[in-house]
Amino acid sequence: MQTDHAAVRGPDRADWGGRAGPVALGVTGVVSLLLLWQLLGSLDVVPRSSLPGPWSVLRALPTILGDQDFLAGAADSAAATAITVVVGSLVAVAVGLVASSFAFLQRPTMVVVNTFRSVPATALIPIGVLIFGLGMEMKVSIALYAVVWPILINTIYGVATTEPMRRDVARSLRWGWWRQQALVTLPSALPSILTGVRVAVGIALVVVISTELLGARYGVGTVLVQYTQASRPEVVYAGVLLLGTAGALLFSALVRAERRLVRWVHHD
């Protein structure tokens, strides 16, 4: 079976353009895209009813921000994502540490992981709806399925790349399994695990919103579907913009937190 540890990589770890360059350039980029957007509508490339102009989307922002349903839905989606990531991380890291500790479990575990993670989680939604109904339980269980594999892979990968010398030190100090995991293996694998968690956050969001589009009772997706059905595309776009902004902020916060947590890595 192939390994594909490299696969599990967050979307935003590059340094190119990451360091904020001249603000003017960034603004020029955004403005040029807004102009293109405006142009697409003006030239009737895409009908107004499908792609409202940037200005009307901007004016719809207060509407969506003042909508109690949207805010409650956002809270619900956020909660589902948070629960998923926390529970998923705990489970996956625990399983990963155990599987890595026993040589006879390593490759068979990778086989299982590679098999199940290749199955697109969204295909489980209709089945999840049957079993768990339309509430939080369903959202979280399906998102959990999607989230566990990348964290598990990254845990196993992180453990496998632990500097062998460090483990020898632990062994020469006659540390037990628990202490060795806590003081050597886990810290060594931490950077890799955190990358997995960051990827998991993105996947969890996608899956949670998918369940909402397919009928979950509450959530951002549910509200946006309602606006679509009410033919208020500008509000839908405003919602998407908000979600994108929230997502971008969340990811940069995660990256920053990650850097703080594993500051020692670069001094190795």
Partner: peptide, 27 residues
Amino acid sequence: IAQMYGPVVRFFAAIPNTVLLPIAVQI
């Protein structure tokens, strides 16, 4: 070009892309 469009690309990447589904159906 990276300084002009890098932030925008990151923004798009951060949108949970299923949320675009209702819009795609509209278009």
